[in-house]
Every structure is written in structure tokens, then in C-alpha cells.
């Protein structure tokens, strides 16, 4: 069994009209045993920038702490928040730094850039960026997420419809994956508002 599947995870991000949504499951497991059902995989970097980290939970926590640290240094030096594409390059560089002993997680980065243009991107564990203009997925449920997103996604959705779509895509995908699930955590980000919602799904 792959080390990426040790804790189980599902992370997805979608682009809407001047908005984006990022969602994850809430399970923390050790292989088939569930430890907790309120684990956090999506983190806020600033009001318009979020990162979801799938994969090994310990590296999710370590990597998140390093990223917060680097972003704080950036804020002090530049007196502004980081742009999403800059942040993606930072994550990529931090991951590639550990090319031969990587952090075992696959990040999903979602943010609103200049003129509220949504930006989403995913990466492998050694920082190879993969940009997309519709949706990105990662985690143990990524295969089923691809299918669900492919079927449900429409371009230029408004925030509410985007929330509905990403939630349905997430919930239907994790039901086909033993290692992820136990509800979901969804953030919908528009230029003036961040909406955070907890989903209940099949809680078994």
C-alpha cells in the first residue's frame, strides 16, 4: 500500500465566475482504522488564498507550518499578501527542495488573483505544477473525483451553484473510496466573502 494512502484523503477545487471553491473530506485514518472525523486538510493562507493538502497527515501538518512561516516572512518583507501563482511557485520550490526525500503530500492551491481572477493548481509531491481552468483533484478518492467533476462541472457558475456542485462531487466520490469520507469541509470564496461549510455525508 502506498504511503500516500496511509491516512486517506480527498481534496478538490473548482473555479466559478469570479469565485472558487475548495473542499476536502474530514477523515483521519491509519490505513483502515479511523482515528478522527474532524481532521483539517484545507488551510487559509489569506482571505483569497487557500491550500488543500492530501496525502500523509504528518507531512500535511509539517508542510502547512512551513508555508505559513514563509508567507509571514513574505508579508513582512513585501507588506502585502502573496498572489496565488507566486504562492504556487513557492510551494513547488519547497517541495522540490526535498526532491530525494519528499513531503508525501499532493497540494491543491486555489486563490483569487488580480481582478478577482480565480486560480487553481495542483502538484505532485515533488512540486511539478499542473494548472487547470476548471477543476483539480487529489487524494485517495482522486479517481472517483475526476469522474464526478467531469460529469457535474459547468463553466462560470455563481458561488451558490458552485458550492452545490463541489459538495455533490465530493460526497459522491468519497462514497466510492474506503479511505476517505466522514463528511466534508467546503470553502467558497468570492471577492468579498469566504463561506465555510461543514458537510454531513455517509458517516460510516
Amino acid at each position: 500500500m502506498s504511503i500516500f494512502e496511509y491516512n486517506g484523503s480527498a481534496v478538490v477545487a473548482m473555479v466559478g465566475k469570479n469565485c472558487f471553491a475548495i473542499a476536502s473530506d474530514r477523515r483521519l485514518g491509519v490505513q483502515l482504522q479511523t482515528i478522527a472525523t474532524d481532521f483539517q486538510r484545507i488551510f487559509k493562507i489569506h482571505d483569497h488564498l487557500f491550500i488543500g493538502l492530501s496525502g500523509l497527515a504528518t507531512d500535511v501538518q509539517t508542510l502547512y507550518q512551513r508555508l505559513v512561516f514563509r508567507h509571514k516572512l513574505y508579508q513582512l518583507r513585501e507588506e502585502r499578501d502573496m498572489k496565488p501563482d507566486t504562492f504556487a511557485s513557492l510551494v513547488s520550490a519547497i517541495l522540490y527542495e526535498k526532491r530525494f526525500g519528499p513531503y508525501l503530500c499532493q497540494p491543491v492551491i486555489a486563490g483569487l488573483g488580480e481582478d478577482n481572477k480565480p486560480f487553481i493548481c495542483t502538484m505532485d509531491s515533488i512540486g511539478a505544477k499542473e494548472l487547470a481552468k476548471d477543476f483539480v483533484v487529489s487524494g485517495t478518492a482522486s479517481e472517483s473525483l475526476y469522474g464526478a467533476c467531469e460529469a457535474m462541472y459547468k463553466p462560470d457558475m455563481e458561488a451558490e451553484e458552485l458550492f452545490e456542485t463541489i459538495s455533490q462531487a465530493l460526497l459522491s466520490s468519497v462514497d466510492r473510496d474506503c479511505l476517505s469520507g466522514w463528511g466534508g469541509h467546503v470553502y467558497v470564496v468570492t471577492p468579498n466573502e469566504v463561506k465555510e461549510r461543514i458537510l454531513k455525508g455517509r458517516m460510516d
Binding site: N7, V30, Q33, I35, F39, L56, A57, T58, Q61, T62
Partner: peptide, 22 residues
């Protein structure tokens, strides 16, 4: 707090380790 040997930290209401955890 649940902390396993690979340094996964999580605040829990109830937790267990080892064969007894099953």
C-alpha cells in the same frame, strides 16, 4: 491529544494505540 510515531497530531475526545485499540 493523539500523536503517533510519524508525528500526526490531532486533538481527540477518545483515542487508543496498539492491538488494544481494535
Amino acid at each position: 491529544y493523539y500523536i503517533d510515531y510519524i508525528a500526526t497530531l490531532h486533538k481527540v475526545d477518545k483515542g487508543a494505540f496498539g492491538y488494544g485499540s481494535y
